[in-house]
Amino acid sequence: MHLVEVKNANYGYAHAFQLVDVSFRVMEGMLTGIIGPNGSGKSTLLKGISGELALPENQVFLKGKDLAGFTDTERAKEIAVVTQFSEPIDISVEEYVLMGRIPYRKKYQFFETERDYEIAQKYMKLTGIYPLRAKKFSKLSGGEQQLASIAKALTQEPSLLLLDEPTSHLDISHQVQILNLIHQLTQAPGLTVIMVIHDLNLASEYCDYLILMRSGALYRQGTPNEILNFKNIEDVYKTEVLTQENPRSKNPAVFLVSNKTGQARRPARFYLS
C-alpha cells in the first residue's frame, strides 16, 4: 500500500524555482530517500509535503486524500518534520519533546495532559534521550539535539516522517546511530519516512527506495541497486565516480575520483558541457 502519492507535482516558489511534473509513490513502512545535486529540487519537494510551501490542489495525496485540503493541525497530526538544525532554545529536553503534542491541543487547553506526558516519555525512551530529559536542550550536543528533535517529531504520532538532511553535520557514529534509529522506526511502528540526504553511501545503505532529482524534475526512481550506478550519478552530478558492491551489505558503494590519484576516464570537458 502506498501512503503518499505525488502526481505531476509542479509547485515551488512564485516566479522562481518550480518542480517539473514530479510523480512517485511512497510505500508504507518504507524509507524513501530523495537525492540529487544542490538546486535540483529536493528541498522544494519536501517543503510542499511539509506545508512550508503552498500546495496546489490534486498534486500530493496522503492516504488517498488531497494534502492541499488538510488544515494545518490535521497535517501536523499526520506529518512530522525533522530539520537539519534546531533552534538552541533554553528549555528542558522534556518540555522540548512535549511541544510535539501541540497539534493535539484543545482550543483553550492550558496544560499538557497526562497522556501527553506518557507519549513524550515513550518516545524519549525509544530515542534514548530519556536520561537527558531534565537537561537544557541548548546544552545538548548536535547528535543529542537531533535525537531530541526526532523524539519531538514522534510525539506528534505522525504516519509520515520527513527528514531534511538529518545527519549532514554529524560525525559518523551519530550518523549511524540516527539512521539506525530511523530504520528501526520503519520496522517496529511501521513508520513511513521520506528523507532528503546528500551522502549517497548512507542513502544506499539505509534507503529502501530512491528518488533521484535533476533540475526540478525526477530523473530516475528505484531501489538503490537500480539508481546508484556511475552512469546515473555522473549524468546528474556531472562528477566522475566509481561504484562497487559493499562487501557486507551488497548495496552499491560510491567512490569519488580525485585528481590526485585518479586518471579521468574521459576528458574533463565532457562533464562541463
Partner: peptide, 13 residues
C-alpha cells in the same frame, strides 16, 4: 520559540 518554520510544522498558524 522553535523558529517560524518549525512552528508551522506543528500546525501553528
Amino acid at each position: 520559540r522553535l523558529g517560524e518554520v518549525r512552528a508551522k510544522h506543528l500546525g501553528v498558524k
